[in-house]
Write a protein that binds this DNA or RNA. Sequence first.
DNA 1: GCGGAAGTTGTAATAGAATAACATCCCTTT
DNA 2: AAAGGGATGTTATTCTATTACAACTTCCGC
Lengths: 166, 166
Amino acid sequence: MPPRLSPQAPLACRPHDHTRCVSHALDEAEQRCVTRGVRLTELRKRVLELVWQSHQPLGAYDILEQLSQQDGRRPGPPTVYRALDFLLEHDLVHRLASLNAFIGCSHPEHDQACQFLICRQCRTAVELEQSAINQAISEAAQGIGFAVEQPMVEVVGLCSRCREDA
Amino acid sequence: MPPRLSPQAPLACRPHDHTRCVSHALDEAEQRCVTRGVRLTELRKRVLELVWQSHQPLGAYDILEQLSQQDGRRPGPPTVYRALDFLLEHDLVHRLASLNAFIGCSHPEHDQACQFLICRQCRTAVELEQSAINQAISEAAQGIGFAVEQPMVEVVGLCSRCREDA
DNA sequence: GCGGAAGTTGTAATAGAATAACATCCCTTT
DNA sequence: AAAGGGATGTTATTCTATTACAACTTCCGC
Ligand SMILES: [Zn+2]
Ligand SMILES: [Zn+2]
Ligand SMILES: [Zn+2]
Ligand SMILES: [Zn+2]
């Protein structure tokens, strides 16, 4: 009998009903856009849905590709980047600089900066919101008089599932 | 009388004799290459010197540009990227993913992962090596069974000097 | 010295990611 | 209907990085 995944493994790394992740994310997005008085247009919703198709970050050109497969004809890069900019602005997706890729935001309300753990094998990215990390950064910055504005933490490694597979 | 820079401001944010930064970095590099049995060729040394011309991260194509101005004719991008790859491999420079740019490594011996504080105004980047940050990341990762390999921390904000100028 | 092997650089072409500039369309408000 | 703002379409371009192959240099055994 194969080793089971440790119970603390995040949802993204375990088999799960991902349709619930997607519908939850879309619902949240609709709601947030209403609250903020902005429009979650059809295009933006489709892009958000594509980003949420898995827990693995997706490149802008992958999104473009899939959009064009759905429609038959492909829009230009600006169309996708504009949708992504909108989603970024409203904290519905995040951009991972180390991968040049985008991933759906899994934290409904952002009371603080988030961090990402990225598996180099299965490419799954898990979003954290650890105050201990943010505090450690703030304190270090404060020590040299630096005012933190956008802390970015992207950790490459092996997720629990891939460690067990090895 | 204008406010003085706080004493804890890192060297990079204060007026200082930068020629010493450069010569120290080059000496260290020479030495490390000897130790490791690899060659710090003329090209690699020139690229390292260019990266060290300031405490602001430099793009690969900026390096290319400056190389070609020195020589009259410009090498291809691979020439520069190969030199950078070598320097990265031996921890003589770092790549900042959030800027697509490179900066000289200011930590002689890397006993642990480093972090960067990047000023959005003057573009100065300061390298830290804070065990508290690394520990906070390790602990968070451990909590969900993730094995950290390459933690990347790049913090955008305002350096002490630019805060006072404002 | 000679020949080969490994390492280094040169060169041309291409891939990949993101933006600029401008046109068009759509929705809302008057 | 007209006007304005927001959203999308379109084309071209910029910036970043890599692939593939050729040429050259250094080092080492012979
Ligand atoms: Zn899911
Ligand atoms: Zn994995
Ligand atoms: Zn200096
Ligand atoms: Zn500054």
